[in-house]
Design a protein around this nucleic acid. Structure first.
Lengths: 195, 195
DNA sequence: GCCTGCCTGGCAGTTAATGCCAAGTAGGCG
DNA sequence: CGCCTACTTGGCATTAACTGCCAGGCAGGC
């Protein structure tokens, strides 16, 4: 354990993060420059870029770790559980592992209101999707398999994320007044329940 | 008709576009600079940015117009048609109105192989989605309305686009050997058919 | 044939991001 | 305790995507 180094690195990163989120909320994402964040956080621009590879990572940087967690969670659901239910379980875990709701709401609003951020966020999510496809594929009955199993798996994963996205947007739009998991269930029901 | 101006503008834009797509295909998107495109197309960098606001617009710039067409098409489907079928009809029209298949394939490959392009592309489509929500909402039976109608409409639209996206990815990945509309139907079936 | 108006190109400047190098500091070792 | 090594930091220069500004040119109306 390279204790002091790791620790001060952690502290510095958190300071930068707090500064950045505060400034973004105050003046908007585009209007806030890296130079300003670095100045107010008491760090050089160069080091800031070493902590966070890009400006966008300041907002949606911790998504990588969540992706790993999501994949593992879905994998570990009981084998008899359907792909849909396994994915839902994964989603649920992500929810609890995320930021405290207060901050999650702030970040969500920022992301949904800032095109470049939203784009980057989507990009990260696409990587999750790609990783989940084989996991979901393994869970599909090889039975009738009318659509090629890969097509099926890709479509299911894409739809689940579309519903997560829609639910999150609604949640952020209503200032977190509704339950995110409930909204997700409503979205999925709207898609899958015929009639 | 501001004939000569409009016309030469059109020609110049097309030249730039062809040059850009060729270079992107040859060396990749990230490796191609605006300076190079401008040089080879015989235009100043400054003017290139006047034609296409951003580098990404060189690839997915003509999406705006298609969005309008999509919305109008969905609106004009017979009133008794379900939201799903109306959206499918819109998708079908888009397919025929798009680039010739050869170029569409090339562009699709470029987009799906370049993360930043793909996310930007999805972001543009999100604007279509927002415009389609009220249209789809009007088509939903006000009946039981268990999920709030807006939630329902958003979820349906998001899912349809997720399936379009998945189908396009598969189509581009298989070099256009399958029919895009067929792939779309398979994706939607994978999502909506229980079993 | 001139005048007006739009368009173009060049130039400078901003911002995000990357590479390089010198300087500082933690932690191990004699 | 003092040195050495490893790692980190910060400054400098550079690139690439944009943007604003201004001068000059060319189409189209009079």
């Amino acid at each position: 354990m390279t204790t002091l180094w790791e620790r001060s690195r952690q502290v510095a990163a958190q300071t930068v993060l707090d500064t950045a989120v505060r400034l973004f909320a105050e003046q908007g994402y585009e209007q806030t420059t890296i130079a300003q964040i670095a100045r107010e956080a008491g760090i050089s621009q160069r080091s800031l870029f070493r902590y966070f590879g890009t400006k966008e990572d300041l907002v949606c940087g911790d998504q990588e770790a969540l992706g790993e967690l999501l994949k593992r969670t879905v994998e570990q659901q009981p084998a008899e559980m359907s792909a849909w239910d396994a994915l839902r379980a994964g989603f649920e875990v992500i929810l609890t592992a995320n930021h405290p709701p207060e901050r999650a709401l702030e970040l969500s609003r920022l992301i949904f209101d800032t095109p470049s951020l939203r784009s980057r966020y989507i990009e990260k999510r696409l990587r999750w999707q790609a990783e989940l496809v084989p996991v979901v594929r393994a869970r599909l009955g090889d039975g009738p398999g009318r659509p090629a199993p890969d097509t099926q798996a890709k479509a299911i994963v894409a739809t689940v994320f579309a519903c997560i996205d829609t639910a999150t947007e609604l949640w952020a739009g209503h200032d977190g007044r509704f339950d995110l998991a409930d909204l997700y269930d409503q979205c999925l029901a709207a898609v899958r329940d015929h009639g």
